[in-house]
């Protein structure tokens, strides 16, 4: 399985994503891909890592979405390639219109970094099949602008189509409907504020994120009829 981890100026979880993918996805070949690249052909999973792309100076993710690589992401997403946006990556995906909604300043106005308990609201996706529906997992957050917003009509749609994948058990940022992560209609683009790549190591005493990566591996194998 070929994995691309995008690197924008200001990305800072790119290496963490590389390490997590290498560690959890058997046989993964992981490349860091620079923001000026204009093709992502041949990749099976595209990860957009956390950080502060372009300093997040206008709005989080607002400038990154115009990087050449984002056109390639849109194309790959349309072709069904798995795309996982984490934290700043989620913000970029919403700015790029690949996921609905927007991420705004936390209601408490402070950056928050701590462990967070998530409900797996939809365990029937390529990213979450390894979890049980309704299972509560511990995936840490670290963000100042993770307050998910969308209009009521969009929210109804998200609910109706089962696009809400993770919700917070204790909403840390004011997100509507406690949303921590959403998936696109096609089911191949997931954006989430919490950091699964920070929860894959027993020495850091949290391994709840491993199954997110192994779920993707399983989905990819099934798609390509590879027997694991």
């Amino acid at each position: 399985m070929k994995v691309a981890v995008l690197v924008f100026p200001g990305s800072n979880c790119d290496w963490d994503c590389v390490h997590a993918a290498e560690q959890t996805i058997e046989g993964a070949v992981v490349d860091r891909v620079w923001h000026t690249t204009d093709t992502l052909e041949g990749y099976d999973l595209i990860m957009i890592p956390g950080g502060f792309s372009y300093g997040d100076y206008l709005r989080s993710g607002a400038i990154a979405r115009f990087a050449p690589v984002m056109q390639a992401v849109a194309k790959a997403a349309a072709e069904g390639v798995y795309v996982l946006g984490i934290c700043n990556g989620f913000q970029i995906l919403t700015e790029a219109g690949l996921l609905p909604g927007a991420l705004r300043r936390n209601t408490g106005l402070k950056f928050r970094c701590h462990s967070s308990q998530l409900h797996v609201a939809n365990a029937d996706t390529a990213f979450t099949s390894g979890y049980a529906a309704g299972e509560v997992i511990d995936i840490p957050i670290a963000h100042g602008e993770g307050n998910y917003y969308c209009e009521d009509a969009v929210l109804e749609q998200l609910k109706a189509r089962n696009q809400i994948v993770f919700t917070y058990t204790d909403n840390p940022n004011g997100s509507v409907a406690d949303i921590a992560g959403v998936i696109n209609e096609q089911g191949n683009v997931l954006g989430m504020m919490p950091h699964p790549e920070r929860a894959v190591n027993s020495l850091l005493r949290n391994e709840d994120g491993i199954r997110l990566f192994t779920s993707i591996m399983k989905a990819w194998r099934e798609r390509h009829a590879i027997v694991g």
């Binding site: 206008l58 115009f66 927007a102």
Partner: peptide, 9 residues
Amino acid sequence: KKLLANPVV
């Protein structure tokens, strides 16, 4: 439209 404002919010 494209950059300076985010029409969602």
